[in-house]
Amino acid sequence: MAVEQFPVEAGHIMLFARAIGDTNQIYHDANYARGTEPGSVIAPPTFVQASAQFNPDYYLRPKPGQPWFGSGKEPTGVARGEGGGGGGLHAEQHYIYHRHPKPGDVLTATVKPGKTWEKQGRRSGRLIFTESITEYRDQHGELVVTSRGVGVTTERPVDQS
């Protein structure tokens, strides 16, 4: 997703590391981090995914005054379209690290569409895969992380049997 300004912040890195259960001090203790090879707090390898926080239009975040598809009074706040498909899932994620982001960086994310392909799934019907390539650059225009994500839309919920 395109993001104009993704400020990398120490508190955000700490919360993200907690969420993945990573107690490594380099993610929350600046004094400790100074003595490590990177020399400062750095972000965990999957942190750039949190750039979603800085995309004003990100569709998987509820926004005041707008209908939300999660439950409230009703199981969903949005009328479902025809078909009632299984919805979108994350199929693949690939990262190339040119360096590791650190607090103080202000990244931008630009997105290029990739390939689209279809497959018949055993457990969820027709699958439509969509690839996108995101380049995260720093405040100097230098490439920091290249991300390639593949999303999949399933025809029906994935069979768990």
């Binding site: 490590t36 090879e37 390898p45 899932l89 199929a91 693949e92 994620q93 990262y95 690290y97």
Partner: peptide, 13 residues
Amino acid sequence: VGDGRLATFGVRF
């Protein structure tokens, strides 16, 4: 591998 050492990382779910 240590902090800041990863060069690539990818998975299929």
